[in-house]
Every structure is written in C-alpha cells, then in structure tokens.
Design a protein around this nucleic acid. Structure first.
Lengths: 94, 94
DNA sequence: TAAACAAGTTTAAAATATAAACCAAAATAT
DNA sequence: ATATTTTGGTTTATATTTTAAACTTGTTTA
C-alpha cells in the first residue's frame, strides 16, 4: 500500500530547496532564490515552513552591511528527505 | 537547473491513481478507491482532472445492475508519467 | 539628497485539495 | 408493499496551500 507522502516535502519549491541543501548542507537565501527561480516572497514563506518543522535552521546576519540569511539542513531534514525519497519510489515504480 | 514538475501529476492522489494505472492499464473506480484509501468525492474530482488533460479515459457503464466506472491510462498519460519520473529524479538526486 | 537597488517579510489573492452533503438506483429488512 | 440501508458515484462548500504583489529597512549611486 502506498504510504502517505510528507506534505512538507511534497511541494515543488520546498523540495527544490531541500534538494539543494542535501548537496550543499548550507546556502544563502539569495543563492537559493537564483537556483530555484522563485520569487523572494514565495521563497521566504517556504523557508519559514521548513524551519518551523525543523528540517532546516536559519541564521540571519550580515555580509558586510547587507543582510544575509543562511539556511542549513538539519539531521531531521536529511532523514525526512530520505524517507520521502523512499516513499516516492513506490509511487514511481522504482 | 531543476525542471518544473507537471502540476497534474504532482498531487498525491492523482499520482497514486496514475501509479496504479501504469501497472494495470485499467481499473474500476471502486478498486482505485480501495487501493488509495481516498474518499469517493476526492477520487471523483481527481479522476475528472486526469481525464480533462487526457491522461486517462473514463467509461461509465454497468456491471449487471450497478454502475461501474472504468479508468484507462492513455499514451499521453504514460508519457507524462515517465517525464514526471525523470524530472523528479533530479530533485531526488537519483 | 533623491532615486534606484538589495534582501527580505507580510499580506492578500488565486489555486488546489479535501470531505461533507447530496443523488439515484438497487438490495435488504419489516 | 414499503421503509431502510447500501452501493457507486457527483456536486459543492470549506480548508489548506501556493503564489505574487505590495511593503519595509537599509544601502549604494547619481
């Protein structure tokens, strides 16, 4: 029987962010925005959701004088991503 | 760069239906309902969407005296499913 | 010092998913 | 015979989610 997919990860933009962070561990907001082609508003909302469930941590600081937001994937986030991949494999017949 | 995922397939219930139909080619409404644990209302709506975009065809008839709805996957549906799987692989790092 | 720009956040609108309520016909119980 | 329940769905109203437009705060440039 097909498992229920994690609704936090089953969202195109949040999955894209997590996919990037799986490889990089951490990335700036602006980099994620470039790579995903998302609007800043949409990205901001989705990053907040990922943070709320503990899949990433978010540090706000400064790079010189300009604000900088850095996102880092957590153990919980890595585990959730892997679980999601496994669950999806059954849907995709892999 | 990550490709945009087909929004028709990037829906848990529609993906589950398509996953079943990829293996079986055709299936009854009641069977799909059992296998997905969906409510009839939700399943009805999602089947209609899959039909509207031409990923499945829907035949309504009778099995003896009781109504029977049979869903059949189309070539377009098979192609779309395969494309979706390929696009997702990049998100999932496969 | 005014205008444009960068890095985000907040909010309101649009789209989507979901289930509750409904319908028609058949089977079952009274 | 006639209520009552069950089966196989559809329609519609609500809840949730996504998305982008509008806004904020501070910075650089003209």
């Amino acid at each position: 029987m097909l498992k229920k997919l994690d609704p936090i990860l089953h969202s195109e933009l949040r999955l894209a962010v997590m996919s990037l962070l799986i490889s990089l561990t951490k990335a700036e907001f602006t980099y994620l925005k470039e790579q995903t082609n998302a609007t800043a508003g949409n990205l901001s909302v989705q990053i907040t959701k990922l943070e709320e469930v503990g899949y990433i941590t978010v540090e706000k600081g400064y790079k010189g004088k300009v604000p900088q937001t850095i996102c880092t994937i957590s153990k919980k986030g890595i585990d959730a991503f892997e679980q999601y991949v496994n669950d999806l494999k059954e849907y995709l017949k892999m």
